[in-house]
Design a protein around this nucleic acid. Structure first.
Lengths: 218, 218
DNA sequence: GCAAAAGTGTTGTGTCTACACCCATGT
DNA sequence: ACATGGGTGTAGACACAACACTTTTGC
């Protein structure tokens, strides 16, 4: 079967989309959305189909495979293979969810069915790592944003404070951000208007490939 | 089914273990070793079993999952899921192989059956990336080694020249290497005896977790 | 002494964090 | 004028690559 850890930054917090189980085993517990794979169906197609039909989420800005779980103990009754995915939703969307579905704080997850708790944490680690060496931020941020809005997204996903000054410098130095030329008008309390930025590319790209042991300059 | 890209540095070259297919489809072509998953069998157990029975490789110093392929076109006759793995063998071992199995240069692979060519390249990329931010070198190197032997291993795996000076500095600075206290006697042509080193840990560890956007110093 | 191989010292460069300072707007 | 929030300048720390130099051996 296929599963997805769908993450979104909502109100400055990193949240996962969970689904309340109606049936045994683990009836009543929260779990990751997903379902069975159809014959001759691609894993990616399967998880997109389940997300679209069961939880009504269609606007994924990023979807990638995490890993496949095969431990016979992971399901109490039967042996079940499950391929987990990481899906990201931009912070300015608010998909309408069915009643048995809700966003939960990744920081304080309830007990999840099966091995879904560890899968959710694996997804968060993958996201955190990729924020530092790829442009994956594009998938969490709106189309256009100010640096301080982007700062909030990064801080929520990383789980610690990020300085807008340095965030801008890193992303501009690497050529990930470009100014749109537009400005955000200040609110009622005043302040200098903020420049709007966008990600130059909205495809996943590795931007910091070699931390060390780079190929020789020649 | 399960597949494995087994890599080893042999004679200063990065090589993959391939298996010549006896049966259709792709009879005669080279392919990655692997086989079917038994009911209630773990993916890791399955690939270890196939490697042990079919190609007689038991001494893997590292084994991790790569990804699961599901494209219905990947097999001409049937729809087949395959979970690919990366396996590493230390450079001082030389497992005895059955006659239909051989090591091939990763640089110049023959045409491989199914989608195995792209899986082999994916494995190489994964290895290259992890060499720069983890201690995965332990899985390619012998138990004890001189810096210049380790240099050859890194150069072969990365595909470009590496300076022994800087390799040592990076790995020592990060606390990955420790001196054994022993020395390697020089050969007939003389030269200063080399100090022997070993990896401090032979478990996979991430040693350079945050390239940028580190958590605040406090 | 000389060649060979290993190891250390040193310098320059680039990237990152932290923090001070300046800018543009609302009231 | 002053508060508010955005943006830039700059200095220090650190990690890295490159390369010169020194050390230890065999012949």
């Amino acid at each position: 079967m296929t599963l997805a850890v769908v993450l979104q930054v909502r109100d400055g917090r990193l949240m996962v989309l969970l689904w309340q189980r109606a049936r045994e085993p683990f009836a009543g517990l929260w779990s990751l959305p997903g379902g069975y794979l159809e014959p001759r169906e691609t894993l990616e197609h399967s998880i997109r189909r389940h997300l679209a039909t069961k939880v009504d989420v269609r606007e994924l800005s990023q979807l990638e495979q995490l890993e496949t779980r095969s431990d016979p103990e992971r399901h109490p009754d039967e042996w079940q293979l499950a391929t987990a995915h990481l899906g990201l939703v931009p912070s300015d969307l608010d998909p309408t969810l069915p009643p048995d579905t809700a966003w939960h704080l990744v920081e304080s997850l309830p007990r999840l069915a099966f091995d879904h708790g560890s899968i959710a944490l694996l997804a968060r680690e993958r996201l955190r790592a990729k924020l530092s060496y790829t442009n994956i931020g594009f998938a969490l941020a709106p189309e256009n944003f100010t640096v301080s809005e982007l700062r909030d997204v990064y801080a929520a996903a990383l789980g610690y404070g990020v300085s807008p000054t340095n965030l801008q410098r890193v992303l501009v130095r690497r050529g990930l951000l470009e100014a749109t030329g537009e400005r955000r008008e200040p609110g009622p309390s005043g302040g200098r208007p903020a420049a709007l930025f966008r990600f130059r590319s909205r495809e996943l790209e590795v931007t910091d490939p070699f931390a060390v042991l780079r190929p020789p300059a020649a």
